[in-house]
Design a protein around this nucleic acid. Structure first.
Lengths: 117, 117
DNA sequence: CCGATATTTCAATAATCGTAGAAATATGGA
DNA sequence: TCCATATTTCTACGATTATTGAAATATCGG
């Protein structure tokens, strides 16, 4: 991942409404959500939402497909995971015991403490 | 983590120079780097760098301490890990097999163990 | 104290961003 | 075809952002 790609992805997420849209799509999973459903959930004007979708899509964070009159947007998990890898690349000069690692993309419900192995 | 905190962190990282600063600090680990060293590595004017440090610090992404005439900045890994958790919260509605998880803060790809000293 | 080094503060400016309104485009159904 | 629904395009505007230059502050060594 290039620096410019990472900046684009981060900038796309660095806004209240877009971050809200993205998180909804992350939770929705590969099936995605229609623009209309998102507009209603977040109480956003359709044209404003189009503006934000464009930025998310330009950053590679979402995909879009048409379904009848609706546009269905879905999160691109590969981009998120690449971005996380970029941000934490060569963490602590390769001695990661200095910074606690976290697992991305884990479920919310089954959040039990991992026993030390 | 509140949405506004996540937006602040993402906005702080969503800029070429700041992302460069942050990644240097991630790689430097807890010891951090002085403002002067970073200014030289990234070829940035000192006052411009101060502006960017302020934003990173306001977002909770770095800490700063004085060492003589130098200011030493260091990455805050807890914030990064919290941010990643926020972005991927309840991924795929709790069925994460649909999106490949990644481990944040892992060592560089090719690393040998520290020689005992 | 003085001079040098390291960094910050302040003020000004061009560029970019988020939102809203009005109009346009695309699809589906009667 | 006509109409309703769903979303996009275009235009404009206030707000925020990154950078620069000049001056100020803090620390160290002599």
């Amino acid at each position: 991942m290039e620096t410019s790609d990472a900046v684009a992805a981060l900038a796309a997420l660095a806004q209240d409404n877009r971050l809200g849209v993205y998180r909804l799509l992350v939770q929705a999973g590969p099936d995605g959500l229609s623009a209309g459903v998102i507009a209603e959930k977040l109480d956003l004007a359709p044209n404003t939402l189009t503006f934000h979708f464009d930025r998310l899509r330009a950053a590679g964070l979402v995909t879009v497909r048409r379904d009848g009159r609706s546009m269905i947007y879905a999160a691109r998990f590969d981009t998120m995971n690449t971005l996380i890898a970029y941000l934490t690349a060569n963490c602590c000069g390769g001695q990661p015991e200095q910074c606690v690692p976290v697992a991305a993309c884990k479920p919310a419900a089954k959040r039990t403490k991992q026993p030390a192995s």
